[in-house]
Each structure stands twice: as structure tokens, then as C-alpha cells.
Design a protein around this nucleic acid. Structure first.
Lengths: 146, 146
DNA sequence: TTCAAATAACACCTAAAGGTATTATTAATG
DNA sequence: CATTAATAATACCTTTAGGTGTTATTTGAA
């Protein structure tokens, strides 16, 4: 199970910004701490700020701020804010109509797999993962990242 | 959880070919039954036949045949034969070294998710899913597929 | 021994994700 | 009210997965 780069970036951003929910973060600060290409980061921030998880403040002392309590923001919601759906409701074999016609033989098993992923992503909130572990991880390891 | 198109194609192919493990299948027959672009299918068959799951027979009455008992072929092995790894051992946030340094806060949960996927894909064999359900599904629905 | 029907190989095209560059807009502050 | 530091918008470039086209090779059989 690999998320898209964009989804990973969004999760890094939100995880970092959840450290201080009041603070306005500039893209420059995020760039310096999260190892995301600067211009791509800026584009992504604009996209995320159009969802319900981030707000933007324009102007000289502007930046971005988490829009709601981190306790209320699920990881799935963050990924959805990027425009992606990591789980979906798709046939294992990639057929369009599987669930609506005769179920393929792995349909049940695969549904359980997807349910599991959905559970973890939708029930885990930013508040749960923003702990010092992950933040110290990011700060300590930025240098070894590509 | 979405597999790549290529992985889905490989699974369709193997699932179909498992119906008769002795039979030589031509790409034409597979094409007519599995809704995979013809030339892409041919390219993929060559790739798969270089793995341990398919053998090819060249020449006039050639084709492809499942290389081993379907009971011994796991879904994960099929996906691996396409050159992909759907699960991997990657950090949730996409950092390179996560598991080897300080674990990020969601690391444990995410490991369980991946384990679950791995279990299903590696423990489920072709033999289990090749039942009439899925085959009749494919045959009945080919017309509604793109 | 030639033809036909199959796979094999190689090169190229297309669409989408990821990434870059440039210019416009906003708003605090000297 | 001009400057500056931030976000917003738009367009373009690059890489890769997916898909296509053409030619070569293999092999059974008329």
C-alpha cells in the first residue's frame, strides 16, 4: 500500500502544522522542514487551502493555518483534500461493474481489506499522530532525505 | 486500495487461465474475453512468461500456459511478476528512512494495515478465486466494459 | 520448403502525475 | 503610498505508466 507522493506530502504538511494549531506557517518554513519541492509545495498549499482543513491568510504576514481542531481532522480527509481516494470501491480485477453484477470470487476478502484501510485512515486523526515522536523524526532526518 | 492497471490485467489473465491449467491460451482468446488492449496484453504476456507463473510456447500452435498448479500461485506472486510491489515496506509519510530511525507516530498502525494486505495477497491462491463465479462474471460482463 | 499462426523484440506515442517558472494579487508597515 | 513579503493564478516542462505499430522469429503442417 503506497500513497501517492501528493498524498504523502499533504500528510507531512498537516502533521507538521498540527504541532501548533494557532500558528500561521509560511511555505518557506514548511519547505525547510518537510523536504517537499518548493514550487510544488506552494501549489499544493493552495489546493489544500481550498478544502476544509486549511485556511490561508494573504498579504505580508500571511501563511497557512489548520482550519479546525486536529482532533477533528482524519487522515482520510487530508488525502481527500488532495483530490484522491486511496481506497475507493473498486473491483479487485479492475472491472467497472463488479459489485453491481455477480461478485468475483475475491470480492468479499478484498472488501475487508479496503474496510481495514478505511477504518485506519478515517478513524485516525491528526491529533493522534502529531506527537513528539513524529515531529522529532522529521526534524532529525530531514538531512538524510533526498 | 487500488492496484495498478497492469496488476489488474495480470490478475484477470491468470484468473482466466486458471480455469484450465493444461490449456494453451492464445493472446487472441485472452483479448476476446478479458477486455485488455490487445498490444498491451501481448507485451504483458511476454513479461509474465519470463516469471515463474507462465510458460510460453512459440510457433504455429503456440500460446501461454500456467506454469505451476494454481494452488501454488499466490495473488501477490502474480503482481510481483508485473514488476510491482503493491505493499512494500514504506513509511506512511513517504520518508526514506522511517523504519530505521525513529518511528513516526502512525508507523505501528500502518504496519498492521500493510500486514493485512500482504496476508490476503500472499495467502490467497489462484485456485481459491478461479471459481465459476468469477469466470461467469467475466464472460457475462465483457460487453459492458470500456 | 513454403505458408500460416503464433510469440518476441524494438521503437514510438499518449495521458497523467509530479515538478518548475513567471506573473499577478494581497496586505502590513515604514 | 511605495515597498516588501506573503499567497494566487496560469502556463509550461519532465517522467512514468499505459498503450500502439512494425518487424523479426519460431514452429507445425500442407
Amino acid at each position: 500500500m503506497k500513497l501517492s507522493k501528493t498524498a504523502e506530502y499533504a500528510l507531512r504538511i498537516m502533521n507538521y502544522m498540527a504541532i501548533d494549531e494557532q500558528k500561521l506557517y509560511t511555505t518557506t518554513e514548511l519547505f525547510e522542514n518537510l523536504n517537499i519541492p518548493f514550487r510544488y509545495l506552494r501549489k499544493l498549499m493552495i489546493k489544500l487551502s481550498k478544502s476544509e482543513i486549511l485556511t490561508s491568510v494573504q498579504g505580508k504576514h500571511g501563511g497557512y493555518r489548520i482550519a479546525r481542531k486536529s482532533l477533528e481532522i482524519s487522515l482520510l480527509e487530508i488525502i481527500h483534500a488532495t483530490g484522491e481516494d486511496p481506497v475507493g470501491n473498486v473491483c479487485f480485477f479492475g472491472f467497472e461493474k463488479c459489485a453491481f453484477v455477480e461478485k468475483c470470487a475475491i470480492h468479499e476478502k478484498w472488501t475487508l481489506v479496503r474496510d481495514n484501510i478505511n477504518q485506519v485512515l478515517s478513524k485516525t486523526t491528526l491529533a493522534e499522530i502529531k506527537g513528539s515522536e513524529s515531529t522529532s523524526f522529521i526534524k532529525n532526518n530531514i538531512s538524510i532525505l533526498t
